[in-house]
Amino acid sequence: MTTPPPTGTHVLLVAAGSAVGAVLRFLLDTAAGGGWALWTLNLTGAALLGLLTGLLRGHRSGRWLTPLLGPGLLGGFTTFSAVVVLVVGSAGPVVAVAQLAAMTLLGALAAWAGLVLARLLRRDRDVRAEVRR
C-alpha cells in the first residue's frame, strides 16, 4: 500500500491536471458542439478513470500519477455542472430525469468496464511475469 502525498501537493497535482483537462474539454466541446459532446466526454472520462484507477492501484508511481491523471486530468475533463444546467435549461421534467438517469447508469457502466479491463490487463501481466520466471 502506498501513502498519499501531503495535502498541498495533492491539491496542486489535481489543479494542474484539471487545467489541462478543462482545456481539452473546451476544445472538444467547441469543435463538436451540441449536447452529444458532453455525453461522449463524460462517458469516455469515466471509462478512462476506471482503467487508470485499476492499473495504478497499489503501484509506487500511482502515489503521484493517480491525483494528477485521475481527479486531475480526467476530473477536470469530465463535468457535472454543465449536465444539470443544460437539463434544467432545456428539457421538461420527464426528459430531464430520463437523461440524468441514463447518463448516471452509462457512466457507472463505463467506469466499471474500465476497472474490469484493468484487472484483465494486470492479470495478463502477472501471468507473463510468472511464465518468464
Binding site: S18, A19, G21, A22, R25, F26, D29, N42, G45, A46, L48, L49, G50, T53, G70, P71, L74, G75, G76, F77, T78, T79, F80, S81, A82, V83, M103, T104, G107, A108, A110, A111, W112, L115
Partner: peptide, 26 residues
C-alpha cells in the same frame, strides 16, 4: 464566461469520479 464556466465550474465538478464512486460503493 470561459474562465468561470468552462474553466472553474467545469473543473470543480466532475462526472468521472461520480461514476467511479458509485461503482466502488456497489
Amino acid at each position: 464566461l470561459a474562465l468561470a464556466g468552462a474553466g472553474f465550474c467545469g473543473a470543480l465538478t466532475t462526472w468521472s469520479a461520480f461514476s467511479l464512486d458509485l461503482v466502488v460503493l456497489l
